[in-house]
Design a protein around this nucleic acid. Structure first.
Lengths: 207, 207
DNA sequence: CGAAAATTTGACATGACTCAACTGGAGTGG
DNA sequence: CCACTCCAGTTGAGTCATGTCAAATTTTCG
């Protein structure tokens, strides 16, 4: 009985989703998998709680097992602007702060109660050193990330508020269900009021 | 005399800027440097000439030795939107097309007569295979790229047209000198006319 | 259940766009 | 070396998409 309890504490966290995320791109030896897992930290975050905030250096990469987080900042206009959203099986963070180990500019906040897995800056160095293919996986990830962010720039440049919302709703139906309107509006670069009007126009014009 | 001529043709291209770009992050053995150089292609591009265009798969990474290129697309609004600009010692491309080897959506066009260095998709695979630290360098590059693009999203979300221009002019004085106004406007997400007005207002208000 | 947070709605304001006409180079060819 | 065209930039008048503000309503959650 004691044994099972200890097992629960030290082993029972479920890293399978994260491993499924990484393993298709890489063949981990048993040692390597053990190293990777040894470095992971499992955390539970309550709704509204902050994972990072401006002024503090970002020490961890954050992978969302389940729940929802957002990254936002407060601009000179004193408005919140949402930079990124992450639900189950996505990553989120303040990449500039982590990369250069300088104070963050973003808040990372839980939109729902959320469970995350993290690894530290030092651990990432270790992983890059000890697992030859790890850099490759990360490279692919960052490249895809860059492509995604660039797509967002493209929408911002060429689409109207209504078109941006439509594209968003089509691309991320999950977000439309789970993320409050005012956050979506701040992600799309429009006011809550205007997004509200867009939504209701759509409904009424469907009759 | 014959010998010098051959040397000119096969050896004389100046890869030093590119190597300076890469080598701080990596210790290349002589073999590795030879491999890298063997894979590079040196090209001269005339003003207005296209390096890539929509519908064609992007086969090369492009590094600008000197000159200026831009990446743009034509939106549903039939307007040109500039996605990225590159002058001396920068990279440019359609990363989505290269990564997934699917048809490009972007035009890459020379703004001035330009010299570039390229390597192919296959070569990149080779470099990743043969040069252990190459993935690491690329990872860092893509990570920095992602951070940069994200900064642009931040400006788009939180700044007015005038503020965006001011930030741009401060950050990239080179571009203000060398890139025509209508391209800068399309990069910043505003019309040529409006940017023209912003510029002239600024001058007149300085008296 | 009650307070706080999120959303909706309407009237009004404005930043940025559209259109159209004009100006001033920069090539280009005779 | 002029004449011509073409492309980039400028300017102004009118318009439209989106923002602002404020109040009413609905939803959420402790």
């Amino acid at each position: 009985m004691k044994l099972t309890q200890r097992m629960f504490v030290t082993v029972m966290h479920d890293y399978s989703t994260l491993l499924k995320h990484i393993e298709p791109h890489i063949n981990l030896s048993d040692e390597e998998r053990t190293l990777l897992i040894s470095v992971l930290k499992y955390k539970k975050i309550k709704r509204k709680q902050l994972v990072e905030q401006p002024g503090f250096v970002s020490k961890y990469r954050t992978y969302v097992v389940e729940g929802a987080l957002r990254a936002y900042f407060i601009g000179a206009d004193e408005q919140e602007h949402t930079i990124s959203l992450a639900v189950d099986d996505w990553w989120i963070g303040d990449p500039g702060s982590f990369l250069f180990q300088e104070p963050a500019t973003l808040y990372i906040e839980a939109i729902e109660d959320t469970t995350i897995i993290q690894w530290s800056y030092e651990s990432e160095k270790l992983l890059l050193e000890k697992i030859p293919q790890f850099a490759m996986v990360m490279m692919m990830r960052w490249q895809r990330t860059a492509v995604m962010i660039q797509r967002r720039v493209i929408s911002n440049l060429s689409l109207s508020a209504e078109e941006r919302y439509e594209e968003f709703a089509k691309k991320y139906p999950v977000f439309v269900q789970r993320i409050p309107l005012y956050i979506i509006a701040s992600y799309l670069g429009m006011t809550r009021e205007f997004l509200s009007k867009i939504r209701n126009q759509k409904i009424s014009s469907k009759n």
